[in-house]
């Protein structure tokens, strides 16, 4: 089994008519994802290589049965796009767009929680989600992921996620689902959301979690692992040598007021029984050892 998505997931791409949306939407379809629709109020009735365009997500859902959306809309339009998706009736919304204002993120996160509690938001500023062989929504290169399991991956960083997928593939290890939760201050899906689902997923036997400096999501995940996760977890935290007060590329990757350091996160994870690698390769090797012993 996979988490959040599977081969039955039908996806509408908001922004399919833009260059990024078109490029990745078509790549995702080529991978085997059910890319059923796109949206653009000015181009309703047209199509992108056979994928019909609708004015709103609601129209797309009514016509195609879409149950997920993927947003490639530029940052100023993301807040409205997220609400269009939720009001349109999809259950899973993936926001790839980076550079969304933090106040918008905080607002639509809480609006969804209050008025659309059944909707799961992933992102913004994330690479998306891939369940190898079944569904790929977002910008992950599908061919670097080996289908089948037994590992579930969750990560704040895109390229480190790819690195993790690739290292496991090179070792012949498959992945049930790989979720990129993104590096922004208010991620729609957290480590804990993914850990909870991986723990419940019978096909996932071990979990790989890649974090980075900033915030306290890793510490909260460590407490959750301690209390609720029985499956082995391997982790890596990027930014051990990052200076305080500087944003390391991601809006959320910043050490402020002495909080959010990699050392504190690694200590919390180790205390929860997590095996922590000091670089992505080491984390891959630790995971290979665990998989060999399963």
């Amino acid at each position: 089994m996979s988490i959040f998505v599977d081969e039955n997931t039908k996806v509408v791409y908001q922004g399919l008519t833009g260059s990024q949306g078109r490029y990745y939407g078509l790549l995702n379809r080529e991978y085997g994802t059910q890319v059923v629709a796109g949206t653009n109020p000015k181009k309703a009735g047209e199509d992108i290589e056979g994928i019909p365009i609708f004015a709103t997500v609601g129209d797309a859902v009514a016509a195609t049965g879409a149950n997920a959306s993927c947003i490639f809309i530029p940052a100023p339009g993301v807040k409205a796009a997220v609400m269009d998706a939720a009001e349109g009736g999809v259950e899973f919304i993936v926001v790839i767009t980076e550079g969304v204002p933090a106040h918008d993120e905080a607002w639509f996160y809480n609006r969804l929680k209050r008025d659309f509690p059944g909707v799961q938001l992933l992102g913004p500023n994330c690479p998306g989600i891939i369940s190898p062989g079944r569904c790929n929504i977002g910008i992950t290169a599908g061919h670097i992921a080996k289908p089948g399991g037994p590992v579930g991956i969750v990560s704040r960083s895109g390229t480190l996620t790819y690195q993790a997928l690739y290292e496991l593939q090179q070792k012949g290890i498959g992945v049930t689902t790989c979720v990129g939760i993104g590096g922004d201050p208010v991620p729609g899906t957290t480590f804990i959301d993914c850990l909870e689902r991986f723990e419940a997923d019978p096909e996932t036997k071990a979990i790989m979690m890649f974090g980075e400096i900033g915030g306290s999501a890793e510490e909260e995940a460590a407490a959750f692992i301690q209390a609720h996760v029985t499956k082995p977890v391997v982790s890596y935290i990027a930014g051990v040598t990052a200076p305080p007060g500087k944003k390391m590329g991601h809006a959320g990757a910043i050490i402020s007021g002495g909080k959010g350091t990699a050392d504190a996160k690694m200590d919390a994870l180790r205390a929860a029984g997590v095996k922590v690698g000091l670089n992505p390769t080491e984390a891959g090797e630790l995971m290979a050892g665990i998989v060999a012993g399963l």
């Binding site: 990560s155 704040r156 960083s157 895109g158 390229t159 480190l160 996620t161 790819y162 690195q163 590096g183 890649f210 980075e212 400096i213 890596y236 990027a238 930014g239 051990v240 040598t241 990052a242 390391m248 590329g249 991601h250 990757a253 990699a262 000091l278 670089n279 992505p280």
Partner: peptide, 17 residues
């Protein structure tokens, strides 16, 4: 020089390591 914030941070780390 690296591509992606996570990989760039990781590269800084590994040079120190």
């Amino acid at each position: 020089i690296a591509n992606g914030a996570g990989l760039a941070m990781s590269t800084v780390d590994i040079v120190s390591q």
